[in-house]
């Protein structure tokens, strides 16, 4: 690791102010990506501003038809949150499948979506549920937030403070774990909103990162059942291919995981 200056922010405003004062600062949440990358000397921020100790940024709350997860909430807290399990059990389930226990105790929702790894779990949940990302400056819909591999709508120095999820009528998540990293080799989140909209998002599969899957959405709109997806064809074109999964295999997994997610959603 190169030398860096660590700051523990006690408020979002202080964090933003610290960021403005340094040349090449990085925000630190759970550190599950940033710290390994720094240890390998692949990142060399002048300053690291820790958001993980800001009390206002931790917690899970349900209010009416909205579940709000504050940005520095670790995955373990979401997986075990009564509010999350009651409002959107598929989302609590998603959190329970992230990485391994060590990752779940440290990693946060804000860090995960700000990083936008193409195989991360949360982006699929946000996109399928039509969540809204709250920052210290504005609100951004999930549709506008994810911009491709490791790219988001966040501006320099902008801090995610929370993610709010509309409680769906039905939702389900199914994940094929990457055997080494435990990211998603391919995972699919399906949701039926209370207004009847069908949204399906796949992560780990596309070269563009998390994506909606219109063909499956159309099939499920006609008939919300696993068998409705039987006739859908998913093209392998544009999908990732590596030693753990060819693009054809991932195309198959999008279908199979979608069917299992629908089955889980009920």
């Amino acid at each position: 690791m190169y030398q860096t200056t660590y700051h523990r922010a006690s408020s979002v405003d202080e964090a933003a102010s610290l960021f403005g004062k340094s040349s090449e600062a990085k925000f630190l949440a759970g550190g599950q990506t940033l710290l390994p990358v720094m240890k390998q000397r692949l990142a060399s921020p002048s300053d690291v501003i820790d958001l993980g100790k800001i009390k206002d940024m931790i917690g899970v709350e349900a209010s009416g038809d909205t579940l709000t997860i504050k940005a520095a909430t670790p995955h373990y807290d979401v997986a075990t949150s009564d509010a999350a399990k009651k409002a959107i059990p598929a989302l609590a389930y998603l959190a329970s499948l992230i990485g391994d226990p060590a990752v779940r105790y440290r990693g946060t929702i804000g860090g995960s979506i700000a990083n936008n790894d193409p195989a991360a779990d949360y982006p699929a949940g946000l996109l399928a549920l039509g969540a809204t990302v709250k920052t210290n400056k504005r609100s951004i819909t999930a549709d506008d937030f994810f911009k491709g591999l490791f790219t988001t709508a966040l501006e320099d120095g902008e801090i995610i403070t929370a993610v709010s999820f509309p409680v769906p009528a039905k939702a389900g998540y199914a994940k094929m774990r990457h055997p080494a990293s435990r990211f998603a080799l391919t995972a699919v989140f399906v949701a039926q909103t209370k207004s009847g909209e069908i949204r399906v998002a796949a992560t780990g599969a596309s070269q563009s990162g998390v994506v909606r899957v219109p063909a499956i959405e159309a099939a499920l709109k006609a008939n919300w059942s696993p068998s409705a997806i039987d006739g859908v064809t998913i093209s392998a074109s544009g999908l990732l291919s590596d030693i753990h999964g060819t693009s054809e295999y991932r195309a198959n997994l999008i279908k199979v995981m979608a069917q299992r997610a629908v089955a889980a959603a009920g």
Binding site: D100, P179, A180, S181, I243, H244
Partner: peptide, 16 residues
């Protein structure tokens, strides 16, 4: 080498 870290080289875990 394509598998020079645990991100790519799959070591068995207890739940495997």
């Amino acid at each position: 080498p394509v598998t020079a870290s645990f991100m790519d080289y799959a070591m068995p875990r207890a739940d495997d």
